[in-house]
Simulated scan of single mutants.
Amino acid sequence: MKKLILIYTLLLFGFVGAQSIKYGVTGSVHKSSMPGIHGVGKPAWGGNIGVFADFALVPNDIYDSAWLYFTPQLEVYTMGEKGDWNEDKINYQKYSNVYVGVPLYIKYYLKNQGYKGDIYFMAGPKLEFLASEKTDEGNAVNEALAAGKDPKLFGLGQRMNKFSYGLSVKAGAKVAESLEVFIRFDRGFAKIYPDYTAQTTYNRFLAIGVSYYLGESY
């Protein structure tokens, strides 16, 4: 986590000479999952809270007229799902993890008659660090062994990567002077279970949320 905070701080200092800087807080709710490992998985509800800064990459001569920004974000969010290794739909395994992440977005506002509009799109890489891990597999490992199955083939008893990376995209709209709403999709590319080789494992979630601007400097 210290490394991620250092990265975010360096990014902020690296853009202190930008045309303008807008900053604020953001939050969302999402459904997350970890495909490819826990048998028949069920997405889990989770949340996200963070801070962000918009660094204008184009001239901002008129108040809030810039239409292209670099937007780093520092956030805390939950990821997880329910698994069902033998697909009996009775006893589910539960996986609930907390991450600290740094998405690095490019933010583009659509233009309306040559001026900055209210609709925007964002995309960029995301770095994430596993802050806490909570796994409740019950008696699944023993049940698999008793059935003559190898628990590892069903993703049971696996260790997790502490660091991973992926891609985050957003689409949103300005609904008030300091308020924006958005939908967001994140997809990991790093294996979250490094010892599991049967399939590729990764994090993903689909979210809806809001961003609120606290201030701006020129």
Rank of each mutant, 00 (worst) to 15 (best):
P194I: 15
V181Q: 00
G27N: 02
G17A: 09
G209V: 09
Y213F: 14
T9H: 05
S168G: 00
S33E: 13
G172D: 00
V51D: 02
E137T: 14
N112D: 03
V98D: 04
D64W: 13
G80F: 14
F182H: 06
L110F: 15
D136F: 02
I49E: 04
A140C: 02
T9Q: 07
I37R: 10
G24K: 02
W67Y: 09
L127Q: 05
N203T: 10
F163P: 01
G188T: 13
A171M: 11
P43K: 08
L110N: 02
A44T: 10
L206F: 03
A146L: 12
A198V: 10
Y69W: 04
W85L: 13
V175R: 01
N142S: 13
V210R: 05
F70V: 11
I208V: 15
K2C: 02
N97G: 06
L156S: 03
D54T: 06
D88I: 08
N203Y: 08
S28F: 06
S132C: 05
V98A: 08
W67V: 01
K170G: 01
A190N: 14
F185T: 03
P35I: 14
Y92P: 00
G148A: 01
K174P: 01
K152R: 13
K82V: 09
E180F: 13
G27K: 00
W67T: 03
Y193S: 10
S211D: 06
T201P: 03
Q73M: 15
A146D: 08
E75C: 04
Y165M: 13
E87G: 09
G124Q: 01
Q113W: 05
A176T: 11
L127S: 05
K3R: 11
R184Y: 00
V102K: 01
T201L: 07
M1R: 07
Y92I: 07
A44M: 13
Y196D: 08
P72A: 11
A140I: 01
Y63Q: 06
Y196G: 08
E216G: 06
Q113Y: 11
K94T: 15
V141P: 00
N97C: 12
F52L: 09
D54Q: 08
I208T: 01
K82Q: 13
R184L: 14
M160N: 12
K42I: 09
L10T: 06
T200D: 02
G24T: 02
P35D: 10
D54K: 05
A140V: 02
L167F: 15
I7R: 08
A190L: 10
G117F: 15
G24W: 01
V181I: 15
F55A: 11
G124H: 02
K191N: 14
E143S: 13
G209L: 08
I208W: 03
F52I: 06
